[in-house]
Amino acid sequence: MSKTFAVVFAIALWWAVPSMSAEATQEKCTCDTKPGAVQDNGAFVNNAVACWSREDVEREWCTISIQSIEGDTRHQTIIGELDRLQDDPEQLTAFLQEQEAETVADQSTVEFAQARAGLPSLMENNSKLAAACVEWFFKHKEGNADFDGIEEGPFSCRIGEATGWLRMSFLVGEVRFIFMIAPDA
C-alpha cells in the first residue's frame, strides 16, 4: 500500500468513523509549534495511536505522519518491538530509525532534508537515553514508576501522566522529529 493511499485512507476513516480517542493533548499525535496551555498553533490526528511529527521551529510549521490508527495491528507490532528491544539501545535505535524512514518519506523543504540527514547520528548519540525512555514507558504502563521525563540537549522524552503516551523528541538544528505512541490497551 502506498504512503499516499495510507494517508488518504486515514483521513477518510477519520471522517467516516467516530473516534474512540479523547480530546487531543500534547501527549498524543499532535504538533504545536508554540506549545502552551491551549493548543492553537498546530494539528492533531483523532484516531492515530502511533505517529511521527516534524516541527520546523523557525518556520512554525509541522507535519504529522501516521504509523498506526486505532484498531489496526501495526500498533501492537510496534509496541512488541519496543518491549523486545528496550534493553538493547543500538537495536532500539536502528528500529526507530527504520520506523522514521518508513513513515516520514517526505522531504518537502531543504531544511527538512538537511535535518533528516543529521537525524541518524543524533539518534545513535542518544541511544541510551532512548532506551531508558522506552523502559520508563513500560514501567509507567504497568503502574510501577513515576517519571519526570528526560531533557538532555537535543533529546527529550516524556510519558503522559493521564494517557500514558510516549513522546520522544530529537532536535536537529531547527527541526524537531517526534515519535509518539499510545500504550497498548
Rank of each mutant, 00 (worst) to 15 (best):
M1N: 05
S2M: 12
S2F: 14
F5C: 00
A6F: 15
A6M: 14
F9L: 06
A10S: 06
A16K: 15
V17F: 00
P18C: 02
M20E: 11
S21V: 05
A24Q: 09
A24N: 08
T25Y: 00
T25C: 02
Q26H: 09
Q26N: 05
E27L: 02
K28S: 10
C29F: 09
C29E: 11
D32N: 13
D32P: 06
P35C: 09
P35D: 09
V38A: 03
D40S: 13
D40K: 15
N41E: 08
G42Q: 04
F44L: 03
N47V: 04
N47G: 11
A50D: 03
C51G: 07
R54M: 06
W61P: 00
C62E: 10
I64W: 03
S65H: 15
I69F: 02
E70K: 10
D72N: 14
T73E: 11
R74Y: 12
I79P: 08
D83G: 13
R84L: 11
L85P: 14
P89H: 04
L92R: 01
L96T: 12
L96P: 08
Q99D: 08
Q99E: 13
Q99V: 07
A101D: 05
A101G: 03
E102I: 13
A105V: 15
S108I: 12
T109P: 02
F112S: 08
R116M: 03
R116Q: 13
G118A: 11
G118E: 12
P120E: 10
P120G: 12
P120D: 08
S121N: 12
E124F: 00
E124C: 03
E124D: 10
N125C: 04
N125T: 12
L129G: 14
C133H: 04
C133N: 06
C133P: 04
V134P: 10
W136T: 15
F138T: 09
F138I: 04
N144C: 01
D148P: 00
D148G: 12
G149P: 02
E151F: 05
E152D: 14
G160E: 03
W165M: 06
L166V: 05
S169V: 02
L171Y: 01
G173Y: 01
G173D: 07
G173F: 01
E174D: 09
R176Y: 00
M180A: 15
A182N: 05
D184T: 05
D184M: 00
